[in-house]
Nucleic acid binder design. Structure first.
Lengths: 127, 127
DNA sequence: TCCAGTTGTAAAAGAATTGTAAAAGCTCGA
DNA sequence: TCGAGCTTTTACAATTCTTTTACAACTGGA
C-alpha cells in the first residue's frame, strides 16, 4: 500500500551520520552497509544516548529511563548492554560510545579522524 | 457484468519478485513455478506483510488487522499461521518472513545472496 | 606508587518470547 | 447434517534476550 508506506516514511525519524543510520522507530540499524539488528533494550539505550548526542548522560539517568531503576541500585546491567552495543557498532563502537569515568556515557557524532600519525600528507606529495 | 470484470482485471494488484508472485485478489500464488494455494487467513496475513514489505509489522498490528484481536490477548495463532505460511513459501519461507524478536515480523523482498565465502571473484579471473 | 572506586568482561542463570506438533473446535459447501 | 479442510488452542520445546555473578582491568586522587 503506497499511502501507508509514504506516511510511515514521513513519520520515520532517523539519526544519520557518516557511518551510522539509526531509526528511532525500528530495531534495525545500519553501520555503513551492514544491517544490524538491535534488541529492545539495546535500541532504547542507543536512542537515549542519541537524543543527547554530544552530551554526557549519567548512569543514573540511563538506568532510570531505560530500566526504571532507582538510584541506590547496584548493577552491571548497563555496562553489559553498552558492551554489546559497542560490539554491534563495530568498528566504530568505541568511537561512538565514550565512557565518562565516574559519570556515565556519551554518544559522540562521527568526526573524520585526523591522522597525523601516518605521516601521509597528500597535499605535500602532489607534484 | 463486463464492466465490473474489466475493472477488477484492472485493479488486479500483484506483488512480484525473483521467486514469489502474489496476487492481492486471489489466494493462488507462485513460488518459482510451483503453484501454491493459500487459505484466507494465510492470504490476509501475507498481504498485510507484503503491503509493508521491508518494514517491521508488530504482532499487535497483525493480530488486530487480521484477527481483530485487542492488545492484551495471549495467543499462539499468529505464530502457527506464520509457520504454515513459511512452509508454503519453501524453500524461501525463512528468508522472506523474518522474526523480529519481541516486536513482530517483517517480509523481506528477495535479495541476491552474496557469497564471499566461495572466494570466486569473476573480475579477477576475466582475462 | 598504592588503593578505593569504577568500569570491562565472560560465563551462567533466569526470564521472556517464539516455534512446533497434536488435538480440539469451527465452517461452509455438498 | 456431515465431513473435509481450515483455524485455534494447548502444552511443551527451543531460542533469544536480559540480568546477575565473579572477577579482571582500569582510573584518578592521596
Amino acid at each position: 500500500m503506497l499511502q501507508a508506506a509514504a506516511r510511515s516514511a514521513q513519520l520515520e525519524r532517523k539519526y544519520k551520520d557518516q557511518h551510522l543510520e539509526f531509526d528511532f522507530t525500528s530495531t534495525t540499524a545500519f553501520i555503513d552497509l551492514r544491517e544490524v539488528t538491535l534488541t529492545r533494550k539495546e535500541h532504547e539505550l542507543l536512542a537515549l544516548l542519541l537524543e543527547n548526542a554530544g552530551e554526557i548522560v549519567p548512569r543514573d539517568v540511563l538506568l532510570e529511563r531505560v530500566w526504571g531503576y532507582g538510584r541506590d541500585i547496584r548493577t552491571r546491567t548497563l555496562d553489559v548492554h553498552v558492551r554489546r552495543l559497542r560490539k554491534k557498532l563495530l568498528p566504530y563502537g568505541e568511537t561512538y560510545i565514550e565512557t565518562i569515568f565516574g559519570v556515565g556515557y556519551r554518544f559522540q557524532r562521527y568526526r573524520e579522524p585526523r591522522n597525523f600519525s601516518s605521516g601521509f600528507m597528500p597535499e605535500l606529495i602532489a607534484v
